[in-house]
Amino acid sequence: MNRLRDLLDPFLLLLICTVALASVLPARGEGARIAGAAADAGIVLLFFLHGAKLSREAIWNGARAWKLHLAALTTTFAIFPLIGLATQQVTAISPAMRAGLLFLTLLPSTVQSSIAFTAIARGNVAAAVVSASFSNLLGIVLTPLLVALLMERSGTASLISLSSIENIVLQLLLPFIVGHMARPLIGGFVARHRTLVGRVDRGSILLVVYTAFSAAVVEGLWHKVSRGELLLLALLCIAMLSAVLLFTLILGRLMGLAREDAIVLQFCGSKKSLASGVPIAGVLFPASAVGPILLPVMLFHQIQLMACAVLARHYGAAAETGPRLAAG
């Protein structure tokens, strides 16, 4: 029972409750406009805080292990998108769900869970901090560019407009830069109040999810998605994660990485960020399209947490057993 509780992400449970609320009581009319404005403000605040949290020391130190970080970034922004393009051939799911799968593969890596799982697995935590931070920093620019390039080729570019690109600059990139520039003034406050900042992060994401699914429900989302389609979506997410975990394992061995660095490559290269995906989708796509696009992201998020939790515990146990056998 305790292990099941550890595998379940409490935040994902909040997301499920938010989706349920939007399904029963979706925001409509003036309420939808107010919720949308609040969600936009939350996105700006979210990326402002992300900019304030990232230290310049982390950026400069990242260059020291550039082979490891390059391998993780290549997996995140090249190998994953290729897999995403392959999923576009699965016609048993709707075009909106296929667009969501492709969008999922274009997102940066997670930060908190990548670092946490690396620590549990007795990997190189410092390198994980830098790799995950780099991924999220580059994702602000690379993800929208990849969306514009690859979704155009897959036939889903009609969802994206010029105003979407402008919104990326105004709601994501500019707040991030301003937040980073303000780090000397507010960095100490952000570091001392990590719990409060985390609540702001998650509250902003929940608000975006509520507005997105409200619009999708009003458009008839749950009348268009069947149980069979959701099951197939879950199987595709499992297959994608399995493929990338295997790829990063083999790549780490081919590169001759130390065990601690190979763990960083596997955990930072195999995960996708829900925290970044929700606001980016909210900015890039029309409100009615965001709900279906986020379904694969939310599903993959929980699957990756469960799989990587088991994998991290296995690596951690092996690291403890190794020294004991050597001492014996």
Rank of each mutant, 00 (worst) to 15 (best):
S288W: 02
G203P: 06
V111N: 07
L85Y: 10
M151A: 09
I115N: 05
H301L: 12
F80T: 01
A58V: 14
Y315C: 13
R5A: 13
A157K: 11
L106K: 01
A309E: 03
G203V: 10
G269M: 06
M240K: 00
D201R: 03
P81T: 05
G252W: 01
S214C: 06
S154W: 14
M97I: 15
H50T: 00
L221M: 09
T321I: 15
M240T: 05
T105G: 08
S226P: 06
L170P: 01
R183A: 08
G123H: 06
M306S: 12
G322R: 15
V90W: 14
V283K: 02
Y315E: 13
I79N: 03
A121C: 05
I280V: 11
S154D: 13
S273K: 04
G322W: 14
S163I: 11
A38D: 04
L170K: 08
T118I: 04
T110W: 10
H69T: 01
L232H: 07
R98F: 05
L233M: 11
L325Y: 10
K67M: 02
G123M: 05
M298V: 13
S242R: 00
G139H: 07
P296D: 07
F103V: 01
L15C: 12
N2A: 09
L170D: 07
L49H: 08
A119E: 09
R28I: 02
V218F: 01
Q302V: 09
S154E: 15
L173S: 00
D201P: 01
R324A: 15
G252C: 09
G51H: 13
P292R: 03
F47N: 00
G29W: 03
A65S: 07
R33W: 02
L146Q: 08
R324F: 11
A148V: 12
P108R: 04
L45A: 14
F103N: 05
A126M: 02
R28A: 15
S204G: 04
L162R: 14
P292K: 03
I165Q: 09
V310T: 08
L137K: 01
G198T: 07
L25A: 10
A86C: 12
G187W: 12
A318R: 14
L196W: 13
L230H: 01
L159I: 02
S270M: 12
I16D: 05
R313G: 12
G198W: 11
A127H: 02
L70Q: 00
E166N: 13
L284C: 09
R202P: 00
R3M: 09
H50F: 14
H314Q: 11
L284K: 00
K224C: 00
A96G: 07
M97K: 03
I168H: 02
V244E: 10
F189Y: 14
R122N: 11
P286S: 11
E30S: 08
F285Y: 09
L170I: 14
P184C: 08
I115L: 04
L231F: 13
I140W: 06
A65K: 09
S131Q: 05
I43Y: 06
